[in-house]
Design a protein around this nucleic acid. Structure first.
Lengths: 261, 261
DNA sequence: GAACGCAATTCGATAATGTCGAATATCCTC
DNA sequence: GAGGATATTCGACATTATCGAATTGCGTTC
């Protein structure tokens, strides 16, 4: 990992958390000399990745990120393919649907269909949710055991009283998820909101995304038509991506203890 | 400018243009050794700014950009303040409205209100338009003459037959824009679409964004109620940001030829 | 209105760091 | 199954980023 780039990314990350920061504040946060941070920030600013707060000596994230992110979304094959299916699913179930991918310990929502009841709802594309507190996250973790085992080693944050932070409990859920291709979550990220999710698979059998339906906790558990709709949607998207089987095969079993020969 | 960061940004930029690239292709494009590019890409990947194309040896932009960009939008005070006014403007005029900021030679749309006629329209937030071909861009350039003069030195790209690429002609427009606080554009970016834009000013009198109304070229020129609506909207947003006067004062006159004493 | 103090910025010496070419591994094609 | 091309690893070298000190600029106080 190249040091300067690593540090630059950390600067972006800090600004992501704090919104507005001065050079000195950044330097403190990253435990680096101010002049070093200054150089990094100016370099990022030169590419529009960071911007000067209007009329101030503080810095914030820059507009180039918006342009890049727009291209990122356009680049995603899954997204383009999935959109019509999740829209259809939202229509049929009357519920809001999501498509998400993994970003380290989080799931990030790459597409969102609002509940078709005409009410005013916040667009969710771009939102991130800790993976362990999200049905989509659980799906993604269940199919990437190497990553999951790392995550379960660290302490997990509780978002609501209902967030499951016990590694053992999560591990059990993962097994169940791989078993039937469906993950659930009850009030674990947001009170009053629960969700169910299913994996999206590509040609080579990798789980590359998750589809979810958000169910108001008052309507929990969803009836089986919702569940079947979700399954069907995940299968349709996966098929369109060239996947062979759905639900996907269990991830390669964790290598047993003997050295690979 | 720190070399490694500069190069990393260029990698992102290349991926922005080409969507999917292998290490070798990137190396060719940037005229750098493959191993150097490899190091850069892996560092970016380590932060989710770049991602491996599923099942491939090629790379694309990464999901972290989406998260960053989302925070960027939330960070923007102008945007939060302007949203209700541009919505109102779209309602009153029956036309689509935009809010944009400058990103070097382009304007990037940070908020978009669809035409309220219920038709299906593409969301435009995140789109970028060459500044010289956009009414918002002309506003922003007109009020930052140092930048504008640099831009006019370089050859300008023509997007439609109607794009104005003659520096002299643009310079004349800039003077007019500063004069009455309104810029226009007729088919210069997209055929069939014209627009008018006005500056948004902050406390210190800086033009930090532009508001625009998109007018179908078949309805051009817009009648004066549209124009007044735009003026009023720009003034309202600016006032909410703490601006004193609107339209903004002319930018500091270009220093005359004698050396500053 | 002047002086203080803090924060941002500039500068230059130092050595740590990234860079690059060659070697190796891996993937895809024929 | 062999060949070519591409990605990846490795290590020596010198370029390059880093850091501390000095300077500038700004906001705040008296």
């Amino acid at each position: 990992m190249i040091q300067a780039i690593d540090r630059a990314a950390k600067v972006l990350s800090s600004l992501q958390g704090a919104r507005h920061l001065g050079i000195t504040e950044l330097a403190t946060e990253l435990a680096l000399p101010v002049s070093t941070v200054h150089g990094i920030v100016k370099s990022l600013q030169g590419h529009g990745l960071v911007a000067q707060e209007p009329g101030g000596n503080r810095y914030m994230l820059g507009p180039a990120l918006l342009k890049l992110s727009n291209v990122y979304l356009d680049t995603l094959d899954v997204r383009a393919r999935a959109m019509r299916w999740t829209l259809e699913l939202a229509r049929r179930t009357g519920l809001s649907t999501r498509l998400g991918v993994q970003l380290f310990d989080e799931v990030i929502i790459i597409h969102h269909n609002q509940r078709p009841d005409g009410s005013q709802q916040m667009p969710e594309t771009g939102l991130s949710i800790p993976a362990h507190a999200s049905a989509m996250g659980k799906v993604l973790l269940a199919y990437s055991p190497e990553y999951a085992s790392g995550l379960l080693g660290r302490p997990l944050r509780s978002l609501t009283g209902a967030t499951i932070t016990d590694p053992a409990q999560l591990a059990i859920q993962f097994v169940a998820i791989v078993g039937n291709g469906i993950a659930t979550e009850e009030d674990e990220a947001v009170l009053g909101e629960s969700s169910i999710a299913a994996p999206v698979v590509d040609t080579r059998g990798n789980v590359i995304a998750a589809v979810a339906i958000v169910v108001p906790s008052s309507e929990w558990p969803p009836d089986s038509s919702v569940l079947n709709g979700l399954r069907e949607t995940a299968r349709n998207i996966s098929r369109e991506l060239g996947a062979g089987t759905w639900p996907p095969l269990a991830p390669q079993p964790i290598l047993s203890t003997h050295p690979q020969s």
